[in-house]
């Protein structure tokens, strides 16, 4: 339950004690602070601020939406170690999302949804919880339900291989904030990819049933593979202006890494029809799969009920 700022209230809120005065008694910070406090957010010459913001939303939304999906495994994974692993991976991605959405808001405040005057909701939260589906710019690969553990490992392998290749190149971004987020992210996502790769191998060479489930999982994930490498005009501009990466240039590298895992696992690369664009648009253009609305509803409902909430 959030503490609601209501200056007109004529009764005392029982939560006043939580936010006023000395909060050193609380284990965790009771107020938000800018995750980029003190970071130089000046925009490099020749960089279009609105393109930079749009690009940060894309990479931030990939991390945010996938983080939400992976967090749904919490308390449901096959064993405690993997429960903790998936929660940790979700947390790393949530941290990356927070920095990227904060970077988007700092670059172009116009992307942040308007909230009532005096709302204490920070800009990165406004972006996460108060944007509608069409405003999200994530690739569609991160949206589907988790399915079983094998489906999840197949998707995590594809996603983390793609994101690692992307972040490795983004370290050379001429936007110092993006370069810093990428440098940190590479260290984290390298662990995610190896975790997924090991489970992929284990399931593929485990029992007949684990292999059957893994192959079914890969087939479920694969139709959204090509979209990862489809260049949206914002990504083209990002690459042109030196702050981002053209994803079409990642396809070979990602393919080679996946081929290593597939070969070691004795699994053929799927030949499966790809999910096409809808009216020319994919996830990067705000066109999402059917499950996206339910995912956002669950993720956003509490925050939206309390636009004046302080968490």
């Amino acid at each position: 339950m959030p503490h609601v700022h209501d200056h007109d209230a004529d009764h005392e809120s029982v939560y006043d004690g939580l936010t006023g005065g000395d909060d050193s008694q609380w284990a965790f910070g009771t107020d938000f602070e800018d995750p980029l406090a003190g970071v130089d957010t000046t925009i490099a010459q020749g960089v279009d601020a609105s393109a930079l913001a749009a690009y940060c939303l894309m990479l931030g939304d990939d991390a945010l939406v996938y983080s939400h999906r992976l967090a749904q495994w919490t308390s449901n994974a096959p064993d405690l170690e993997d429960d903790i692993a998936l929660a940790n991976i979700a947390l790393d991605l949530l941290g990356q999302a927070r920095l990227l959405l904060a970077r988007a808001a700092a670059a172009d405040p116009a992307v942040v949804p308007a909230l009532p005057d005096g709302s204490p909701v920070p800009p990165e939260d406004a972006l996460a919880f108060f944007r509608d589906e069409a405003g999200f710019r994530n690739v569609r690969l991160v949206e589907p339900d988790n399915g079983d553990f094998a489906v999840t490992m197949a998707r995590l392998l594809v996603f983390s291989t793609y994101r690692l290749a992307l972040l490795e190149r983004l370290r050379d971004s001429n936007d110092p904030v993006l370069a810093a987020i990428a440098t940190k992210g590479v260290k984290e996502v390298a662990y995610h990819r190896d975790y997924a790769g090991r489970w992929f191998l284990t399931l593929a060479r485990g029992t007949e049933e684990s292999r059957r489930r893994l192959l079914a999982g890969l087939a479920l994930v694969w139709p959204l593979y090509d979209e990862l490498f489809r260049t949206h005009h914002v990504e083209a501009a990002a690459a042109d202006q030196g702050f981002g990466v053209d994803p079409s240039g990642l396809a070979d590298e990602v393919g080679v890494v996946l081929e290593q895992v597939l070969t070691t696992s004795g699994v053929e690369r799927p030949e499966i029809a790809q999910t096409g664009a809808v009216n020319g648009q994919t996830g990067r253009g705000g066109r999402h799969t059917e499950v996206m609305g339910r995912l956002l509803a669950e993720m956003q409902v509490v925050a939206r009920a309390h636009p004046m909430g302080l968490w």
């Binding site: 995750p35 980029l36 406090a37 003190g38 970071v39 110092p176 440098t183 940190k184 260290k187």
Partner: peptide, 8 residues
């Protein structure tokens, strides 16, 4: 209190 992201 300021945050520094570089070097990681």
């Amino acid at each position: 209190v300021r945050v520094s992201l570089t070097p990681a």
